[in-house]
Design a protein around this nucleic acid. Structure first.
Lengths: 144, 144
DNA sequence: ATTAATAATGAAAACGACTATCAAAACCAA
DNA sequence: TTGGTTTTGATAGTCGTTTTCATTATTAAT
């Protein structure tokens, strides 16, 4: 799984004529070891903790490469930070976002995906991706 | 319709103990006269053209009030600008966003809304709102 | 109406996330 | 190695947005 993804990046890099660098390897390793919508800042700190030399800009640049090669996807919530999540082939999940505690629950729904395809088709639209976020109060915040 | 919305804001302002000001009236008027996801900058320029004195910050501040009182809703696409759209009671639309020409088509789908309610219920989640955006190529960009 | 008290405003500075710049370092093909 | 090129990290810059704060406007009490 992880090797597969590394291969994915390496193939992409080769095809694009990018050089292989220590920094990109480190950032990929750490990104692959994370879960759920990590912000650039958080990833940067994780990288720094084991590799103090790596710079801010490199993390930003590298994440954009991950998006380009299909490894990652940008997610925007309402806190002004761009987050990146893993792209899992053949799977797409959406988010329940708690506006009180900012917790996030992922869900999948085949029917919604299908309906989206229908809607797009009706408008002559070719889907590249989508984003569905439901905002509200999670069960534990409701109880308070 | 427009009077209704003005009342909505005035009631909210009264309830919150906000003062009634010329600027807020102007901004509300102009916001109500616009359509579809206006950015703060665009609204600011519209306001400025008839009322040069009004400041940047006031427009930002006032739009937040509109959100608070349920007149407007924040929308984020991927261009780094916050946009505001009108909230129409009992109606919720979603967006088809063309990643090539940035055009936006709105759509509504009852079934998707229903499914969302089910999903939320299943997670003990109390929905406040949601956002569904489908990204891809619009029909005219596809043809090129 | 006048007057306080205080809320709202506008200009400008500050902020925070992100991007561009650029000299130095790393990479890689010859 | 070498030399040409890419990548990097530090730093400065950008852009949208928010904060600050002195001034102005609104409102309630006189």
């Amino acid at each position: 799984m992880i090797l597969e993804k590394k291969k994915m990046f390496n193939d992409f890099a080769a095809a694009k004529g990018l050089r292989s660098t220590r920094q990109r390897d480190i950032i990929l390793d750490i990104f692959l070891s994370t879960h759920q919508h990590i912000s650039v800042e958080d990833l940067y700190f994780k990288v720094k903790s084991s590799n103090p030399g790596v710079g801010h800009a490199t993390v930003y640049r590298t994440l954009k490469l991950f998006v380009e090669c299909g490894l990652a996807r940008e997610v925007l919530f309402y806190d002004g930070q761009t987050r990146y999540e893993h792209v899992v082939a053949g799977e797409h999940h959406d988010h329940l976002v708690c506006t009180n505690c900012n917790s996030i629950v992922e869900f999948e729904n085949e029917t919604i995906e299908m309906l989206q395809n229908e809607i797009a088709a009706r408008h002559g639209f070719q889907i590249k991706g989508h984003k569905l976020e439901i905002y509200g109060l999670c069960s534990s915040c409701r109880r308070q």
